[in-house]
């Protein structure tokens, strides 16, 4: 971290992190119920790992996505001989994405994104007002 943080970088990086979270939600929802021939090949829900990034010079803190991990329950085995992806035993592996959880998380993510947008708008107004000081 070379650049010192300000309100705009704090909110901006938090927005990027929340957007990445929204992308993982979208990927998880899109792959809900998808099938695969092997347990390893089945889709597993992905989750971002958030980490606070402190700036000692200014005392501010923002958030970054440290990495994206495959989490969530393993795929469930279903006997479906008619499926073209079925293995020799006639089983397919269905990805176990918790759609309700993903939808709730999507709502939370969008709310937090909006909060950061609001922070940035307020900071912008205040900075512009300060520039007009004495006019």
């Amino acid at each position: 971290m070379t650049q010192p943080l300000n309100v705009f970088t704090v909110a901006g990086r938090a927005m990027s992190a929340q957007l990445l979270r929204l992308n993982t939600n979208a990927s998880n929802l899109a792959n809900a119920g998808s099938t695969a021939t092997t347990a390893a090949g089945a889709y597993r829900a992905i989750k971002p790992v958030f980490r606070t990034s402190y700036d000692n010079a200014t005392g501010l803190a923002t958030v970054d996505v440290e990495r994206v991990v495959s989490a969530g329950p393993a795929a469930t085995k279903r006997h479906d001989p008619g499926n073209p992806l079925a293995n020799a035993d006639g089983d397919v592996f269905v990805s176990a994405v918790d759609e309700t959880q993903e939808l709730v998380e999507m709502m939370e993510t969008s709310r937090q994104y909006q909060n950061n947008v609001e922070v940035m708008n307020t900071a912008k107004t205040l900075v512009l007002d300060t520039l007009k000081l004495g006019k």
């Binding site: 704090v10 909110a11 938090a14 606070t52 958030v63 937090q112 922070v119 900071a123």
Partner: peptide, 13 residues
């Protein structure tokens, strides 16, 4: 302002 923005940014950390 910056400090409160940091708190809001880290609401999900």
């Amino acid at each position: 302002l910056g400090l409160l923005a940091s708190n809001i940014a880290n609401a999900a950390t």
